[in-house]
Computed example of a mutant assay.
Amino acid sequence: MTTLHIVLSDLEVTHATLSKITLLQNKLSANVIWYLHHHQRLFDRRYFTHELAGISGELQANHESKIAQIELKIKKHFPKSSVYQCKDKYWSKQVNSNATKLDPIVIVRSKTGLTSADNQHISQNKSTVFIINQEKWYSDGKAVGAIDPFHEDDEDNKSDMKVVEFMRKWCTPAEQSEPYLLHVIHIPPLAIEYEKQIEALHKEQIYRFAKTIKCSKSVISFTRGTPEDALLSYADNNKVDFIVLGCREHSLFDKWLNGSTISALLSHQSCDLVLINTP
């Protein structure tokens, strides 16, 4: 059975977060394990420990009280789930020791964004990672899969096929009657005079890919613009809760859609993502 490994860095958990995890658990028929990542960077240096010795006890007591409150809240909503505390600077080692290769990791963004530990795991990710914020979803997990079968280093389009496979499992029959795959047509400024030819080329390639995977044209939508802006605008205009992206074997911060689309999307607090790695 699949297990969802939930990593929470903020010392709070919102009702929206709990609702999202419940939906993920039901959609994926999964068990749930929580990790409360609370590395205390304030006391990393020895001289800090010495100089702040007088107040460190009180700080530690407040910290442990918050942790206990979070554990209680999680256990109330997920009584069968396990809750671990992770005090290391990076949480990947502890999570990976409990997870199988196919288990999805769920990173809950802190209020200040992704932490260095989050980014460290994402850059080395080998499976599926959900990245969610602590705000409510519009439509209970409505998703769109971004496809872009134009990569020389993925001639078999394994990355896009993984996205399609995920979307077919995620979408309900009713949702599968609407467009759930999206391709961004980016026209470089210097090629604007050839925009009709470029758009035709994109659509021809996408429909060829759709034919190979036995996918109806009706479930594919197109949008124009720079990839990250176009994806965000489409998600906002269509009340999409998260964007599903395929990632090839190289680092997630390397080329994708002619540039750093994934890293650009990761910087947006409001954008929930699913990153699917292709071995």
Score class of each variant (00 low, 15 high):
S270H: 10
P149E: 02
Y234N: 01
L24N: 00
S177H: 07
E64Q: 10
E71H: 10
Q120A: 11
S218P: 06
Q197L: 11
A210L: 15
I105D: 04
A230W: 04
L4A: 07
H77D: 14
K93G: 12
N98A: 13
G57K: 08
Q134L: 01
L181E: 07
K196V: 14
S123D: 04
R208W: 07
V129K: 12
D10P: 01
K217L: 04
N125L: 12
I55T: 08
K73Y: 14
E249S: 10
V244C: 03
G57I: 06
P104K: 04
D241T: 13
F43R: 04
H50S: 11
A99N: 06
A230E: 04
K27Y: 06
H202N: 10
N96M: 09
C171D: 04
K89P: 06
L36E: 00
D140R: 07
P189F: 04
G141W: 15
T112E: 14
S251R: 15
I131V: 00
I206W: 05
L190E: 05
F253S: 02
E249T: 13
R224Q: 12
L42R: 12
N98F: 10
I276H: 02
R45T: 08
I21E: 01
I105H: 06
L59F: 10
E175V: 03
W256K: 14
E64N: 11
L24E: 01
A143I: 10
K158P: 14
K80P: 10
G141M: 14
N277Q: 12
E175C: 09
I122C: 08
K162D: 12
K75I: 02
H151C: 12
S216V: 04
L182N: 04
L232K: 13
I187N: 02
V164C: 03
K80M: 09
H121G: 11
D254T: 13
S110R: 03
L257P: 05
D254K: 15
E64V: 12
A30V: 11
L181T: 10
T172F: 02
T100F: 08
Q60W: 13
R109I: 03
V129H: 06
H250N: 15
R109T: 01
I147G: 01
N119C: 07
Y90W: 05
H37G: 02
N98C: 12
V244S: 03
K93H: 14
A30F: 13
L59T: 02
T14E: 07
A117W: 09
S216A: 02
S123R: 14
W137L: 00
D254G: 12
R45V: 11
D229I: 13
V7H: 05
Y194M: 05
A68P: 14
Y207F: 15
G225I: 00
I107E: 03
L28Q: 01
K203C: 13
W256C: 11
Y84Q: 01
T49D: 12
H63A: 05
F242H: 00
N96K: 11
G246W: 06
S267E: 13
Y47P: 14
L36R: 05
I198M: 05
Q120C: 15
R45N: 08
K20I: 02
N62P: 07
P188L: 01
Y180R: 08
K76F: 15
P149N: 01
C215M: 11
A68F: 12
I213S: 09
Q94P: 02
T172E: 00
P179C: 06
S29W: 09
D44Q: 03
L42H: 12
S267Y: 12
F166W: 10
K75P: 15
Q94T: 03
